[in-house]
Simulated assay, not measured.
Amino acid sequence: MPAPAPPPDPAAALPPDPGSALPPEAAVASIPEPTDSTTAPAPYGPGPVASATPIRILLADDHALVRRGVRLILEREPDLRVVAEAGDGAEAVEAARGQDIDLAVLDIAMPRMTGLQATRALATLKPGLRILMLTMHDNEQYLFQALKAGAGGYVLKSVADRDLVAACRAAMRDEPFLYPGAVTALIRTYLDRVRHGEENADSLLTPREEEVLKLVAEGHSSKDIADILVISIKTVHRHRANLLQKLGLRDRLELTRYAIRAGLIEP
Score class of each variant (00 low, 15 high):
residue 56 R to Q: 09
residue 100 D to K: 11
residue 33 E to I: 08
residue 231 I to W: 03
residue 5 A to T: 15
residue 68 R to K: 15
residue 66 V to S: 04
residue 205 L to G: 09
residue 170 A to C: 11
residue 221 S to Y: 08
residue 137 H to F: 15
residue 164 L to I: 07
residue 58 L to A: 01
residue 130 R to L: 01
residue 93 V to H: 14
residue 209 E to Y: 08
residue 208 R to V: 11
residue 153 G to H: 05
residue 35 T to H: 09
residue 184 T to E: 10
residue 240 R to F: 02
residue 103 L to A: 03
residue 38 T to D: 12
residue 40 A to Q: 15
residue 150 G to H: 09
residue 142 Y to Q: 15
residue 123 A to S: 15
residue 60 A to R: 02
residue 189 T to V: 07
residue 159 V to P: 00
residue 168 C to P: 11
residue 253 L to P: 01
residue 136 M to E: 07
residue 60 A to Q: 04
residue 248 G to K: 03
residue 44 Y to T: 10
residue 142 Y to I: 06
residue 174 D to K: 05
residue 264 L to R: 15
residue 75 E to M: 09
residue 16 P to R: 02
residue 92 A to R: 10
residue 227 D to Y: 03
residue 163 D to S: 05
residue 97 R to G: 02
residue 229 L to D: 00
residue 36 D to R: 07
residue 148 K to Q: 13
residue 194 V to L: 14
residue 248 G to Q: 02
residue 162 R to V: 04
residue 52 A to W: 05
residue 59 L to A: 02
residue 164 L to H: 02
residue 113 M to E: 14
residue 105 V to T: 02
residue 238 R to W: 04
residue 126 K to M: 08
residue 116 L to V: 03
residue 85 E to Y: 04
residue 183 V to S: 10
residue 36 D to E: 09
residue 236 V to S: 09
residue 70 V to M: 02
residue 232 S to P: 00
residue 111 P to T: 10
residue 51 S to I: 00
residue 40 A to Y: 06
residue 171 A to L: 13
residue 265 I to Q: 11
residue 60 A to Y: 02
residue 29 A to S: 08
residue 91 E to D: 15
residue 251 D to M: 14
residue 264 L to D: 00
residue 181 G to I: 03
residue 264 L to E: 01
residue 110 M to F: 01
residue 84 A to K: 06
residue 234 K to W: 03
residue 13 A to M: 11
residue 156 L to M: 12
residue 108 I to H: 13
residue 219 G to K: 12
residue 107 D to P: 00
residue 51 S to P: 00
residue 161 D to F: 07
residue 176 P to I: 03
residue 63 H to K: 01
residue 235 T to D: 08
residue 28 V to F: 00
residue 14 L to T: 14
residue 98 G to C: 06
residue 52 A to N: 14
residue 181 G to A: 05
residue 9 D to C: 13
residue 73 I to S: 04
residue 37 S to C: 05
residue 190 Y to I: 15
residue 89 G to M: 03
residue 237 H to V: 03
residue 181 G to P: 06
residue 122 L to S: 07
residue 59 L to M: 00
residue 210 E to C: 10
residue 234 K to T: 11
residue 53 T to R: 15
residue 154 Y to C: 04
residue 68 R to G: 00
residue 219 G to T: 12
residue 57 I to M: 04
residue 94 E to M: 11
residue 188 R to N: 14
residue 140 E to R: 11
residue 87 G to W: 01
residue 166 A to F: 11
residue 141 Q to M: 06
residue 171 A to Q: 09
residue 114 T to K: 09
residue 169 R to S: 02
residue 198 E to P: 08
residue 201 A to Q: 13
residue 169 R to F: 03
residue 145 Q to I: 05
residue 263 G to E: 05
residue 106 L to R: 05
residue 91 E to I: 10
residue 239 H to L: 07
residue 40 A to I: 09
residue 173 R to C: 03
residue 4 P to V: 10
residue 227 D to S: 12
residue 13 A to I: 12
residue 223 K to C: 00
residue 119 T to M: 15
residue 216 V to K: 14
residue 160 A to L: 02
residue 178 L to C: 07
residue 154 Y to Q: 07
residue 223 K to H: 07
residue 193 R to E: 13
residue 251 D to R: 13
residue 49 V to H: 11
residue 160 A to S: 12
residue 58 L to Q: 00
residue 232 S to A: 11
residue 179 Y to N: 12
residue 222 S to T: 14
residue 87 G to T: 04
residue 129 L to Q: 04
